[in-house]
Amino acid sequence: MEKKISGFIHKPRIPMIRENIGILIGLALMCIFLSFFSDAFLTTRNLFNIMRQISVNVFLSCCMTMVILIGGIDLSVGSIIAVSGCLCAGLITNNGLSTVAAIIVAVFCGTLVGAFNGAVICLTKIPPFIVTLAMMNVGRGFARIYTKATTILVNDPLFSAIGTANMPGGIPVHLIYMAVIIVISWVLLNKTRFGRHIYAVGNNEMAAKFAGINVRNVKFMVYLITGLFAACAGILSAARTFSGQFSVGEGTEMDAISAVVLGGTSMTGGIGRLSGTIIGCLVIGVLNNGLNLIGIDSSWQYVVKGFVVLLAVLIDYLKKRN
């Protein structure tokens, strides 16, 4: 599989399978294990369920990959989900906006939060952890205020269809949503100059500046994109439950970070691939789903999930040491 170009032998960049082999084996083993312990696991119905369950995490993980690649972090994505979901629901139910209009406004507002994060992080030296942690609380608070601490129900057929429709064959429409967001993210990271710049900034910010890259712009855009993706996830989440709830999205930022880390992206930035993140989402999704099917207490699920992430990172660390 070596290609000769202009006299030099080139090995192509490590193929996706070989780079993620560890986590793929883990995923396969988990599936085999679960199929033994639960008859319901390997059914099409359950597979479709898994697709629905991981859709929000896929949205968040894709943008979280970019954030972590530039050496930052965004803890506010869960709150952005709440903000955009509640806003959309409220606009449809209380203000009579059409679904499409409400979605546009809500996504815009969510993106604005992301832009705000980006602006503060770029213009001040405050660490992203602190800024997004603060916004996480602010966003959650605003959602709570907006919904007056109650649930806003939505009674709109288009809205429900967005969240629960199936394609022919029973395949949930979420598969298309995920496919689109994955393709967009992958193209952004691998086929644009912007993507290259993300890797450069994450690897060595000073060197990126010396190479003529507008570091501030790159960082700002990444947080803005994160706001955008999270807002879309928020719409999806609200559509699935036909409602706007201020508590939605709590803990989703942790799942997103876990998926990114499981997928092999380094927390210090500059190294990592989207393919790993997607497999990480699958691992977490199958884990959540499987543990439910077996009947394990939801409290224990937290413990298992935490250990799985720790194990994966440990293995990666040991591999890199050699």
Partner: peptide, 9 residues
């Protein structure tokens, strides 16, 4: 090392 190269790339 600090101002020029992306060492892990």
């Amino acid at each position: 090392k600090n101002e020029g190269l992306f060492l892990d790339q």
